[in-house]
């Protein structure tokens, strides 16, 4: 069991295109009795775009969030894989490079905040696997999800370049969580092959092809749904299926769920409560 309350950092996507992720995460955690409170007045983590324009700005933004989380007990939950990496990288660099750390500490001081390197960063899948425990989790199943043949897609930012979550190329942490709930997990060698991320908005031709490859392999391996841990992975795989079908003469119609939605199904939560109605490829055929 988990005693402490977590400091929840939603990130911008979970308030926008990934609302279903937030809805399912909150429902699942409260059903399981995991206490979590949203960080008051959090800001965008800066993620990849900031990194390409000005790294210092990106680090500073993440440090403000960590300073806020520290005030709440220092256990920070980050469901967006991109935010997770940006924050983790910041923590690493602040420690490794004095020039970066010193400057940021000074700036934070100016607004009355203090950065502490004791903040712990966790993705929800780590909390379920490491802190909550698989045994406890499987005892909470209310509804069978044995008919789900889940393709576990991790994407890249959660497992790389830092390797403390799991193996950077062949992770299995989500596989274990979903199997513990009774789902069949498909062997999917492309589980960490990048979907292109924001290339979908910039060089669409490349991103569509990458996602086509991911979908094709998912279907050929016998999956009837895909589970993801990152808002952008969900967006690319779910929202572009029509366009991919048209371009590559395919007929994909495979639901792409946040892993918390799959858990929600096993916990017997209503479709609307876990935001399943927000997916563009409907998951209704999988609801029993």
């Amino acid at each position: 069991m988990i005693e402490k309350e977590y400091a929840y950092f939603p990130g911008c996507s979970l308030k926008g295109t990934a609302r279903g992720y937030e809805e399912s995460l909150l429902q699942v955690f409260s059903t399981l009795g995991i206490k979590m409170k949203e960080i008051d007045d959090w800001n965008c983590c800066g993620a990849t775009f900031y990194m390409s324009v000005d790294e210092m700005l990106s680090f500073t933004l993440s440090c403000r969030n960590m300073a806020l989380a520290d005030k709440m007990g220092g256990k920070m939950v980050i469901p967006c894989a991109a935010c997770y990496l940006a924050t983790k990288k910041t923590k690493d660099y602040v420690q490794k490079y004095d020039t970066i750390g010193g400057k940021i500490r000074g700036a934070l001081n100016e607004v009355g905040l203090k950065y502490s390197d004791k903040v712990q960063l966790k993705h929800p899948v780590e909390i379920l696997h490491d802190d909550y425990g698989l045994k406890e989790l499987s005892s909470k199943v209310k509804k069978s999800i044995e008919h789900l043949k889940v393709v576990p897609y991790y994407g890249c930012q959660l497992v790389r370049p830092y390797t403390d979550v799991d193996d950077p190329m062949h992770p299995s942490i989500m596989d274990k969580v979903l199997s513990a709930l009774g789902a069949k997990v498909v062997n999917y060698p492309l589980k960490t092959r990048c979907c292109g991320g924001s290339l979908m908005g910039t060089i669409e031709d490349i991103a569509l092809r990458l996602n086509y490859i991911l979908l094709k392999e998912a279907v050929e391996r016998g999956g009837n749904c895909i589970a993801v841990l990152c808002p952008l992975c969900q967006f690319n795989l779910d929202c572009y299926q029509d366009e991919i079908n048209a371009r590559y003469n395919a007929n994909f119609s495979i639901p792409v769920m946040y892993f918390t939605q799959v858990i929600g199904m096993a916990l017997g939560l209503d479709k609307e409560k876990i935001g399943l109605q927000r997916s563009l490829v409907p998951a209704d055929s999988l609801l029993r």
């Binding site: 990849t48 890249c156 790389r160 370049p161 960490t192 990048c194 292109g196 290339l199």
Partner: peptide, 10 residues
């Protein structure tokens, strides 16, 4: 074109 996926790095 690099999508910052870190596959090369690891």
């Amino acid at each position: 074109i690099c999508s910052s996926c870190y596959a090369c790095t690891v």
